[in-house]
Amino acid sequence: MTLTQAFRAQADACAGLGSPFMGQLLTILAEHWPTTGALATKMAGFDGDIGPAGHSLPLRIAGGLHALVLSGQSPELAALYPPHAASDSDLRDGVLAALKKREAFMLDWTDSAPQTNEVRRSAALIAGAHVATAHFDLPIRLSELGASGGLNLMWDHFAVDAGGVRFGASDPALVLKPEWDGALPPETTPIIADRAGVDLNPLDPTTGEDLLRLSAYLWPDQPERLALTRAAASVANAPLTRGDAIDWLGPRLDDAPDGQLHLIQHTVAWQYFPKAAQDRGRALIEAAGAKATARRPLAWLSMESDGDTTGKIGAALVLRLWPGDLTLNLGRADFHGRWINWDYAG
């Protein structure tokens, strides 16, 4: 895949996920990407997959441009970004000027892969936790793999409005409003006793620099996502570890205490783990499940791509429970949490 092809593919994906501005921006970059200069040379030097499942160069570049806008470093570019509506020619000129003028910033920014913490995925996590608690009514020991900034570890501070029916926190820091199709999850009250997460590059959403990185990868014409991220950051306090997810998970499974439900969660993260790590992680979890008891149960809640392209593109919601090794297919969800098709009726 060439960089031009990667820009076009990402433009189509973003437009399909409700961001016409990103579709416009990335199409402009596909057609007018500079072929000279240090940034162009750097991008041309990447090997392997440069698309969304690999280095994700289009989103690195778009995120850097958005960071220039959010940080106030490029007021000229900000005047062309939402809520303003710019013509293709004006946006083209502004973007090319910013890439040239702020090249040093862009060179530094694009060293790291895109990192988001899509808070709207917590709607699915909250619903899944209600099901897990219906089976094992114990305080939750919560572990997240690929936690990024840890915002989705804070879901007990959020509420869900499902077609006018609310569940979740009684005094929430934010309310998530996905398009909900299906029955509601069980009326339980998940209580988190302990929470922690792991990521190869954990971010601290309480610091300006890391919050800027999380915010910059949210799309400029979707301000509600930015508002939700900042609201979630206001209550963030989950401890995060930098490291390999499976290496971290092993000891955490071993020292899980009696009297708590150990709930492992991940959203659109497992699919990016190397196959060897997936195999090792699955074996660790299943081995711990085989030792689970009613006083020391284990739950594995995942929201990962199911590869279904026949209908709505999204992720499968799957909950495995031990003892008993029960697999519950809870439904499907949009990658950004815009909709949930709930199939579990209890």
Rank of each mutant, 00 (worst) to 15 (best):
P139V: 09
L253K: 09
G18V: 10
G243T: 07
E286L: 11
P323C: 10
L145C: 04
R338K: 15
T206A: 14
A269W: 03
Y344A: 06
D204V: 01
W109R: 05
D12V: 12
W180V: 08
L145K: 01
G281Y: 04
A183R: 09
I61P: 01
G307I: 07
D343H: 12
G72Q: 07
R295G: 09
L212I: 07
D156V: 00
V175C: 09
D279C: 04
A231Q: 08
A269Y: 04
S234T: 10
Y344N: 05
D49E: 13
D334T: 00
L218I: 04
G163I: 05
Q115H: 14
N341M: 00
D210A: 06
R282I: 15
W155P: 02
H266W: 08
L26K: 08
A147F: 03
P223E: 08
L77E: 03
A232H: 02
D306Y: 09
T309I: 12
A333K: 07
S305M: 12
T4A: 14
I140D: 10
T36P: 00
I140P: 02
G72F: 09
G37Q: 06
G23T: 04
H266M: 08
Q115S: 13
L253Y: 11
W248Y: 13
V119N: 01
Q260K: 14
L211Y: 03
W339Q: 13
S143M: 12
D308M: 00
V235G: 08
M22I: 01
D171R: 07
K275Q: 15
P220C: 04
D255M: 12
F46E: 08
I191T: 15
Q222I: 13
V198G: 06
F273S: 02
